[in-house]
């Protein structure tokens, strides 16, 4: 089996990101809850690998812990999209052309029609900014993505002969969807899931950047960027490193998704777009 280069690259980037985040649950180089003002704005050194921020916190440790926020928010949000979006897509596909199909898909269009950030701002403005509300806001916009992908792929499988034979054998729509359709579109969902995951990280960073994500003092990559932007001219490391981290995490997951797609079925390439 030959692994595509994008898969290898994406796999290792994602793995590094995952491992560092898991390590941060048990150990970080420096405590980030206690501020040490005297130690602020230090350049990168052996003691502080990426330097310290305006409160004297170790940037490397903050990025590590910030990974927890990104990872958990994106993971839960994507799961929310999967859990709600995939069944909706399957129902739509099995009842294609019916009123229910129309209602589900037009409902999806409706969510798609709203700019996601505006809705996220609305949600956090009404319920107050918190990690949970960020998850909900990001999660809601994952539902139509998964519903569409599922429906599109499922419909093409519904037309295949083995589905017809399953029908003749007396299986109902529910069982066919579950036993024959779902396993056949799983690879697509995995690919879409990893891409949505990377978008979730980006969205969490965006919400935190505008102050609607996790609240201080919990570190977050997006807020690290926001806090450091006025200092970029004299302490670029404050903004640079969280920025690079976001890029690498998002790039890694995208490459992983792309690579997985190539790996599983090269012929699927056109169907995913």
């Amino acid at each position: 089996m030959k692994f595509p280069i994008s898969f290898i690259l994406g796999f290792f980037l994602s793995l590094i990101f995952l491992v560092i985040t898991i390590i941060s649950f048990f150990w970080v180089p420096h405590d980030v809850e206690t501020l040490n003002i005297a130690n602020r704005l230090k350049e990168p050194s052996f003691e502080n690998l990426l330097g310290t921020d305006h409160f004297g916190r170790d940037i490397f440790s903050m990025i590590m812990i910030g990974g927890q926020t990104s990872l958990s928010v994106a993971l839960i949000a994507v799961s929310l999209g999967l859990i709600l979006g995939v069944p909706l897509g399957l129902i739509s596909a099995s009842l294609r052309g019916s009123l229910i199909d129309d209602i589900i898909m037009r409902g999806n269009d409706l969510i798609f029609a709203f700019p996601s950030l505006v809705i996220a701002i609305l949600i956090t403005a009404v319920f107050g900014p918190s990690a949970l509300n960020a998850i909900i806001a990001i999660g809601i916009f994952n539902i139509p993505v998964f519903a569409r992908v599922t429906r599109g792929a499922a419909i093409s499988i519904w037309t295949l002969d083995f589905i017809s034979s399953a029908r003749i054998a007396g299986k109902g729509s529910f069982r066919i969807s579950l036993e024959h359709i779902l396993p056949n579109i799983l690879n697509l969902l995995i690919v879409q899931g990893s891409i949505q995951f990377s978008l979730g990280i980006l969205a969490e960073a965006g919400l935190s950047y505008v102050g609607l994500g996790v609240q201080p003092p919990a570190p977050s990559w997006g807020r690290m960027l926001a806090d450091s932007q006025t200092m970029i001219s004299f302490a670029p490391n404050l903004a640079l490193f969280p920025g690079i981290t976001i890029i690498l995490a998002v790039l890694g997951l995208n490459l992983l998704g792309d690579g997985t797609r190539d790996l599983i079925d090269p012929r699927l390439q056109d169907k995913i777009k």
């Binding site: 501020l35 305006h54 900014p129 102050g211 609240q215 201080p216 003092p217």
Partner: peptide, 23 residues
């Protein structure tokens, strides 16, 4: 306020007072 708040939250934590910051 925003920066001072984070610093005060950290200083209060030192003596055992937890704060819930809301911006």
């Amino acid at each position: 306020a925003r920066r001072g708040g984070e610093i005060i939250a950290s200083q209060l934590r030192e003596v055992g007072i937890e704060t819930k910051i809301e911006n």
